[in-house]
Design a protein around this nucleic acid. Sequence first.
DNA 1: AATAGATGTAATTCTAAATCTTACACCGCA
DNA 2: TGCGGTGTAAGATTTAGAATTACATCTATT
Lengths: 146, 146
Amino acid sequence: MQISKKCSIAIHCLVFINEYGRQKKVTSELLSLSTGCNPVTIRNILSSLKKEGIIAIPFGTGGATMEAPPEDISLYQICQAVEPDAIGKLMGIHASPSPFCPVGRNIGRVLGKTYQTVQNDLTDSLKSISLQNVVDEYHAAIAQAE
Amino acid sequence: MQISKKCSIAIHCLVFINEYGRQKKVTSELLSLSTGCNPVTIRNILSSLKKEGIIAIPFGTGGATMEAPPEDISLYQICQAVEPDAIGKLMGIHASPSPFCPVGRNIGRVLGKTYQTVQNDLTDSLKSISLQNVVDEYHAAIAQAE
DNA sequence: AATAGATGTAATTCTAAATCTTACACCGCA
DNA sequence: TGCGGTGTAAGATTTAGAATTACATCTATT
């Protein structure tokens, strides 16, 4: 599998909120139009980001705003918020190897250890990229598009 | 989504072949028993590994053997053989952002660039682990189990 | 040369996970 | 008090992965 689209959608939302959150009331409806996906999906994602303290959403009245500066938000944090065990189950392990075979009996543990290394590296990589980096990239793209 | 189980199954098969390939005739049937998954799945995986030059399978008579030393086979190579674009589409991007929104228009390109960094790091990580590392881990597990 | 035991691969079915949709309770401001 | 918003549960839908079925083909052995 892959790290689900939720992560991409979350980033999209955050860039949007960061750009327009001060001027406009950014509702889940609006974000649903911009991202092209369901308002409920958006609300679930925003809800996770809120719990993580990344954004604030006034209950009742609505309109999301940034709660932390983009420099302090890493992709890792976003991924974790939106899909807590995405990295843990990044690499699938086949469920039912034979307990009668020496390889079958041990492969689970062996793969677990091996994949741990990879997952740590991936974690570091995601931690090294901040939302600000993405925003900078976005501004560069905007500038180039003109 | 995640890197599919094929990669884990492939590693299982390679460890098995590396351990027993010289003594026994390792058929897809046998590996299907050890891994607990379908013989056809196994054959597809072995076929990919064969094309990559990692193992040899005499057609007709059967029985897989290692074609390269485990030190020279990286996890990256195995993943690529078994699932060529797993890393490329590791992180899913939502398909239909609005072309009428500045963020929507550019988010695809921005995410692509951002994720590229992560994918490169992951690639490096997978390249740094050899099948020999896994085999060592396996022998350690065997020793400990006694 | 005929057969048994393999592999190679296409096409279909099955299954599980992700996503969408519907529905509704709750909140706060005008 | 009604309107526009969030929060969340439950069910339907979609889709990707894996299993299954089916069969052509190959090689060593009898």
